[in-house]
């Protein structure tokens, strides 16, 4: 059971989140109307807030508002040259918000196990699932490593661009070692077993999953028709 479900918060099936990600993209890149976009972003923000990502939802909301402010109040009073650059930047940054929002939900509220179970249900081949789940497993590990390495640099008076250069050697070293040790541990626990794997995560589309996807699709279609 994931921690979200334990606390009685709404938790969607990982498949819902993945489909929602696709819908989010379609809406974002087919719509020109700013009102549709705002409505879409707001609904998604509410969705992830309900799922327990309240903090991130607030941050994203603030960032989105800044983009809007920039575009509608600040850019018009800017000198022409700057204005063009900023307009492009603000517009495109805004476009990726729906993906960012669903991405946040995926990263924060989906365990590696739920994700692999979902992909298995879709019959994604094992050869793709394992590297994918290792990659997800790897991000927080690398973040931790980089923290240590940056600390170490502070004692050595390493500054500016040199910092980036100095990250490479220790990161590579630890990545190689970790990859080796991680696979040894996985192999001794039978990851290569060709049997059909089981999962104790029960994967079922609930009413909320259906409602959520229905809303997404209806939003998508309605927005298409009226605008």
């Amino acid at each position: 059971m994931s921690s979200a479900a334990k606390k009685g918060r709404l938790n969607f099936d990982p498949r819902t989140k993945l489909i929602l990600l696709v819908i989010a993209n379609i809406v974002a890149f087919t719509q020109q109307s700013i009102w549709v976009e705002i409505a879409w972003v707001v609904s998604l923000l509410i969705l992830i807030a309900v799922c327990g990502c309240g903090k991130s939802a607030c941050k994203l909301a603030v960032a989105f508002s800044i983009c809007l402010l920039l575009q509608y109040y600040i850019v018009p009073v800017m000198p022409q040259v700057l204005a063009t650059t900023f307009l492009i930047l603000a517009t495109y940054a805004r476009k990726i918000f729906p993906c960012l929002i669903i991405g946040t939900l995926l990263v924060q509220k989906t365990s590696v196990r739920e994700m692999t179970a979902a992909l298995r249900k879709w019959h994604v081949p094992q050869g793709l699932i394992i590297p994918l789940s290792v990659t997800i497993r790897y991000f927080p590990a690398i973040k931790e490593e980089i923290g240590y390495i940056r600390d170490a640099m502070k004692f050595r008076d390493i500054h500016g661009i040199q910092k980036l250069e100095c990250l490479v050697v220790p990161i590579m070293m630890s990545a190689t070692a970790t990859a080796e040790e991680l696979s040894a541990a996985a192999v001794t626990r039978g990851i290569e077993n060709p049997n059909k794997k089981t999962s104790i995560v029960t994967m079922r589309f609930g009413v909320h999953d259906v409602l959520c996807l229905a809303f997404g699709i209806i939003f998508c279609v309605v927005a298409f028709i009226i605008v």
Partner: peptide, 26 residues
Amino acid sequence: NPKSQFFNIDADSELAFGLENAGVDP
């Protein structure tokens, strides 16, 4: 090395990992 012998990020998944691989009934 305690850092690098987990395949999952959460304890519950990790505990079930070996048995799931073996295809044991949930």
